[in-house]
Simulated scan of single mutants.
Amino acid sequence: MITKIQREVVVIHSFNDDGELLSDEKDTMNLLAKLPLDSLDLDAISVVTNIYRVAQGLRNKMEREVLSEFGLSWTSFSLLYDLWIWKSIETKKLAKSAGVTKATISNVTKTLERKELCYRKVDNRDRRITYVAITDKGKEVMERLYPPFHKGEVEIVSGLTVDEQKNTSKLLRTIIRENNF
């Protein structure tokens, strides 16, 4: 498989077992091949583009089919999920876990507080540190919400075998670790 492309030579090739690219990938490769770059790593482009598409598709599907019923955005669900697992967490760690800024944590937390799903508390030893904790109502929401959410997770990966799911998880963990995501 050719993984690099010289600017002068436009080669469209497959990245999957079926020997086909998605039409969006073909369009992307054709456009990028015209840029003044010494070479393109088509495999890297394909992986990153497809991770992005999966992430966006997953987010949109879950917001539309599950989270909207509970009045939650993807980010608010992510925060509530972390609180459900850990009960209470420092805002800095919550931001890192959710992949958002502390400012976003502050805004989303305010919304979740208005819905009485969580509350903030200041560390008694260091007033600069703030924790967010889940309320009983927040736990109840997560206990009702998670079964349909998990059903959606299962549906999303249903086209993969168990071994493919495990391998995909392993590969994604490597990307996460290598980039400190």
Rank of each mutant, 00 (worst) to 15 (best):
91 T>E: 09
61 K>E: 07
128 R>N: 10
8 E>K: 14
145 L>Y: 09
84 W>H: 06
35 L>S: 14
179 N>P: 04
89 I>D: 00
95 A>S: 00
139 K>T: 05
37 L>K: 14
19 G>N: 14
35 L>I: 11
91 T>D: 07
10 V>P: 09
67 L>C: 08
86 W>L: 08
82 D>C: 05
70 F>S: 09
171 L>R: 09
105 I>C: 01
138 G>W: 04
15 F>H: 12
143 E>M: 11
18 D>N: 15
161 T>D: 12
100 V>H: 05
84 W>T: 01
51 I>F: 10
72 L>I: 01
45 I>V: 01
88 S>Y: 02
179 N>A: 09
73 S>G: 03
140 E>Y: 10
11 V>L: 11
11 V>W: 10
38 D>S: 13
58 L>G: 00
102 K>L: 01
17 D>H: 14
179 N>W: 11
159 G>F: 15
101 T>Q: 10
119 Y>L: 11
1 M>N: 04
33 A>K: 15
40 L>Q: 13
114 R>A: 05
142 M>N: 04
129 I>M: 05
169 S>F: 14
45 I>C: 01
66 V>N: 07
11 V>R: 12
28 T>D: 01
11 V>C: 09
181 F>M: 08
166 K>N: 09
77 F>K: 03
92 K>C: 01
29 M>H: 09
139 K>M: 14
124 N>A: 06
171 L>M: 14
108 V>R: 03
86 W>K: 10
134 I>M: 04
170 K>M: 11
144 R>W: 04
29 M>F: 10
131 Y>W: 14
99 G>I: 03
111 T>Q: 11
118 C>H: 06
22 L>G: 06
82 D>H: 11
98 A>G: 06
47 V>G: 00
113 E>R: 06
38 D>A: 13
149 F>D: 12
109 T>W: 07
95 A>D: 00
145 L>R: 13
131 Y>T: 08
139 K>G: 02
107 N>Y: 03
122 V>H: 11
147 P>G: 02
86 W>N: 07
152 G>V: 01
75 T>S: 13
96 K>F: 02
118 C>M: 08
13 H>M: 02
89 I>F: 02
147 P>D: 03
6 Q>Y: 11
119 Y>C: 05
4 K>T: 11
117 L>N: 05
102 K>Y: 04
68 S>E: 14
123 D>T: 03
59 R>I: 12
129 I>T: 05
13 H>I: 00
69 E>L: 06
126 D>P: 01
138 G>E: 05
48 V>G: 02
63 E>R: 03
104 T>D: 01
126 D>N: 03
176 I>Q: 12
128 R>L: 05
83 L>A: 05
109 T>P: 02
136 D>V: 06
30 N>G: 08
67 L>T: 08
45 I>M: 02
126 D>G: 04
157 V>R: 14
174 T>F: 15
57 G>R: 14
135 T>W: 07
75 T>G: 06
71 G>E: 06
128 R>C: 02
44 A>D: 08
47 V>C: 03
82 D>Q: 11
159 G>K: 04
129 I>P: 00
97 S>C: 02
24 D>Q: 08
148 P>N: 05
39 S>E: 10
41 D>A: 07
74 W>L: 10
90 E>P: 00
99 G>S: 06
4 K>R: 15
164 E>W: 15
138 G>L: 04
181 F>H: 00
171 L>K: 12
139 K>S: 13
155 E>D: 07
6 Q>G: 11
85 I>V: 02
164 E>I: 09
2 I>H: 13
20 E>R: 15
138 G>S: 06
